[in-house]
Every structure is written in structure tokens, then in C-alpha cells.
Design a protein around this nucleic acid. Structure first.
Length: 273
DNA sequence: AGACCCCTGGAC
DNA sequence: GTCCAGGGGTCT
């Protein structure tokens, strides 16, 4: 479900509620996630003050004043939200956290592809899920060079989906950025011109920035931490538009499958050579 | 690079 | 019933 703009929107809607509040208690209702939650995972955080929530790729990092950090990844169907203490928990609720003077925070994940972990601050960058992540796409470190330096003959869509190269992109925004840049998803990365790499980097930054401004993309069930949907769905140019006319040239949008994921593109506007 | 795996739920 | 889904880890 959530790609970088959705995770960032959740961060932005959750942090103002929790920052400066103390974690009083937590409860694990369902320990089966991508990796099973240990019984006492959150114990070291009880009584700790939440300093801030940051984001790295699609991971949310909850920094506590005891030198511990909680990592949360939402997988495909994970959701962080707020509930009143009395209301019954929705199905597939894995964890709830009770913070001082705050609504009850829950994590819910029907497909169980998400993960939650807690680590020492000093060990954060060595965490197996973080240490191999590439650059942040909205940072100054993400440049045309990032794409040029990748070795091999992979197609450009696969390269952009590779979090070791650039962290946080997903299927929606890769499709959208490639359309915006006029680059066919099956182009070999090593055959892109410098100008195309530049345009692609600009397109990625542009589409992510606009998506964050719209609160992300709600296709089915994505909601921010307040329960609000995202409105970038209204701005999608190719994703999910198979057989619909290209918004630039009217040619029907095509769908193919690359690495098991749907790829949407305009065969007219997106150059293969 | 690609196939397969992990899961549930919704559309058809 | 079948197919599909915004994730990614782990094998060959």
C-alpha cells in the first residue's frame, strides 16, 4: 500500500500528536508479522518520551529519549491510526500503544507484510533493514549520477524499484515518473542519456513532492494517521489506467508485467530507444 | 534477473 | 472459484 509519500504523510500526521508525549504502555494482540514480534519488544520504551518521528525510505523511525528507536514498515496493507480507548479494536490489529494525553495508537496489517523492531540509537544504521538502503530521493544526494553509477544492464524500472539504489519509491510513483520523463520502463539503464537521467531525477522529485502535498495516493484502503485518504489518486497519469487514453497523446495506455509487478506506460510517449 | 514466497480481501 | 493488489526477502 504505502510508498514514500504515504509514509511521509503518516509521519506528518502522527508526529504532532505524539511528539513530547510519554509511552505509558503497549499491547501485542497478534505477533505474526513479516518477522514475529517478540513478547517484550516494547518493554524498554515504556515510560520513555517520544522525541520525534523521522522517515528513511518507507521506514518510520520513532526516536525515544532512552536512546532507543522503533522501526515501523507498513508493508502492503499496514496502517497506523488513532482510536478512542473505548472503541473496539478493528480486526487484524497487531499492536496498540498508549501515550500520555493522546488517543490510542494502533498498528493494523491484514496481510502481515509489515515489520516492527526496536533498536539502540547507536545501532540504527547497522540495522539489517536500513544499512543497505540507497539515497533518499528527495535529498540533494539523489542526482543523475546516482542512476549512472548503477552497474549492469537492468531495465530502468527495476533499477528505480531497487531500494539499494534509491529508497522509498514504489510501483505507483516509478510508473508515474517514467511517464513524466517520457522514458519507456524497459529501457536499459546503461543506455539512458545524461539528459534523460537528469529529466528522470527531476520527474521523481516532482511527482513525490506533489504526492506528499496531496496527502499521498488512496487506491483502496490507504489512510493517514488521522484516517484521511490521500488525493494524489486524482493526479495519476498512467498507474491503473490500462486501455484508457494517454493524457498527452490519446494512445491507449498499455500494461505489462516486469518482475511480477504491473507496469503502465504510453507506448507512444515513452521512448524505447 | 527472475521465480517464488510470505498473507488477506476485494473484484469479478 | 480466479486474479489482482501500493511490500520486499531469499533462493536459484
Amino acid at each position: 500500500m504505502p510508498e514514500l509519500p504515504e509514509v511521509e504523510t503518516i509521519r506528518q500526521t502522527l508526529e504532532p500528536v505524539l511528539h513530547g508525549h510519554r509511552l505509558l504502555s503497549s499491547h501485542i494482540y497478534e505477533c505474526r508479522l513479516r518477522w514475529t514480534l517478540p513478547d517484550h519488544l516494547f518493554e524498554s520504551l515504556h515510560g520513555a518520551l517520544l522525541l520525534k518521528i523521522t522517515r528513511r525510505g518507507k521506514y518510520l523511525l520513532w526516536h525515544f529519549d532512552v536512546g532507543r528507536v522503533m522501526l515501523v514498515h507498513l508493508g502492503m496493507s499496514g496502517r497506523l491510526g488513532m482510536a478512542t480507548p473505548r472503541e473496539p479494536l478493528a480486526p487484524h490489529t497487531h499492536v496498540t500503544w498508549e501515550f500520555s494525553d493522546s488517543p490510542l495508537i494502533y498498528y493494523r496489517d491484514p496481510r502481515r507484510f509489515g515489520m516492527i523492531d526496536v533498536v539502540n540509537k547507536e545501532r540504527l544504521n547497522e540495522h539489517p533493514r536500513l544499512q543497505l538502503l540507497g539515497v533518499e530521493p528527495l535529498s540533494l544526494q539523489f542526482t543523475p549520477k546516482t542512476l549512472c553509477q548503477v552497474s549492469g544492464h537492468r531495465n530502468i524500472k527495476t533499477v528505480l524499484m531497487d531500494h539499494k539504489v534509491v529508497a522509498g519509491l514504489g510501483n505507483i510513483y516509478v510508473n508515474e515518473a517514467l511517464f513524466m520523463a517520457g522514458i519507456h520502463p524497459q529501457r536499459q539503464q546503461c543506455h539512458l542519456t545524461k539528459a534523460e537521467c537528469t529529466l528522470l531525477v527531476e520527474s521523481i522529485k516532482s511527482v513525490l513532492t506533489r504526492a506528499i502535498e496531496q496527502g499521498g495516493t488512496t487506491l483502496r484502503d490507504y489512510r493517514d494517521a488521522r484516517g484521511e485518504p490521500g488525493f494524489f489518486s486524482l493526479s495519476l497519469q498512467v498507474y491503473g489506467r490500462e486501455n484508457e487514453p494517454c493524457l498527452k497523446c490519446q494512445t491507449p495506455i498499455r500494461r505489462s508485467v516486469q518482475s511480477g509487478r504491473s507496469t503502465y506506460f504510453c507506448p507512444q510517449c515513452q521512448n524505447l530507444h
